[in-house]
Amino acid sequence: MKKLLLGLVLVLAVTTGTLYFSPNLLMASMRLVEQQMAGLSSRQIEVNGLSIHYYQGGPSIGETLLMIHGFGANRDNWLRFSRAFTSRYQVIALDLPGFGESDKPDARYDVATQTERLHAFIQALKIDKPHLIGNSMGGHIAALYAARYPQQLRSVALLDNAGVMSPQKSEMFSMIERGEPNPLVVRKAEDFDKLMKFVFVNPPPLPDSLKRHFAEQSMANQNHYDKIFSQLRDHYVPLEPELPKIQVPTLLLWGEQDRVLDVSSIEVMKPLLAKPSVVIMKDCGHAPMLERPEETAQHYQDFLDGRL
């Protein structure tokens, strides 16, 4: 029934011209269908004066999976991945302050500050010892949280996380050191295609109207993202001294062809962790939960079940 609903939305969009004339309406419809298929609903809470938007679904009694997106992203990154978990776990995926639909005040967005905001969010929702999972910048935040609050988690999963000086420098940081533009920030329309090819080995297909829509959204946030990226670098928190403080089981999952953060980071991280598990996904880029959601979900479930 849910697949039929998604098909009807797409057919309606094409036949009524919505795909071309109203990408906002199409996106809202598709997001609603994805939420329903994942068993998630959209919610909002005020924490320390900030409005934070998040998805929540699954049984309210039992263990909770808390999902943290990366730089320039939002909670939608976890929708398809979440489908595998809402029958068994409570699933929560938030828009970090500064991203998505959450508040974007003129404030600090470095990893240490966001980690404390995450702590306040967990306390506000009264989540008891969640499993944290984060991608990229979100993985950096998740790891720092696990180091600062080691008794308040069940596990932590780090997907292509930031925060480590990799033995092999990534293509992104090589570009930035040469003075080239940050490939994660869209400054003109054609940059969006470049971003997709940079982040994914096999970018998901998108209609041209949606590409234009996403490009326009990203360009509108250019200055905001530049500021946040500068703060992440100026107030950088290295994970190397923090990782030994993490006492819970830790999954390191990486796309082998990640051009943003090099897979060799695992060589640094694994010896520093008390209970590491490692998965390297071939022919996969920086966001495995988006590029191959079902396979990534299976790896994560194996980790949660203690099979890794």
Rank of each mutant, 00 (worst) to 15 (best):
M269T: 09
L210A: 09
E216I: 00
L252T: 12
V237A: 08
P207T: 11
Y225F: 15
K194F: 12
Q222S: 10
L273D: 03
V248S: 13
L252Q: 03
P241S: 02
L253I: 15
I228C: 05
L210C: 07
E240T: 14
E242C: 13
L261K: 04
R187S: 15
V186K: 04
V260P: 10
V185M: 07
P276I: 12
M269I: 05
P249Y: 10
D226Q: 15
I246H: 09
F214C: 01
Y236L: 05
A215E: 04
F214P: 04
R212N: 11
V268S: 03
Y236A: 13
H224Y: 13
K188E: 14
R212L: 14
V237E: 13
L251V: 12
K211E: 00
V199Y: 02
S230T: 15
D208F: 09
V268D: 11
A274N: 11
A220E: 15
L273S: 06
G255T: 07
T250R: 10
E216D: 14
Y236M: 04
V186G: 02
L272H: 07
K194E: 14
L243Q: 07
F229A: 13
M219K: 08
N202W: 03
Q217N: 13
L273Y: 04
Y225V: 00
V201L: 08
L184P: 07
S230G: 02
W254N: 11
V248E: 10
F229Q: 13
P276G: 11
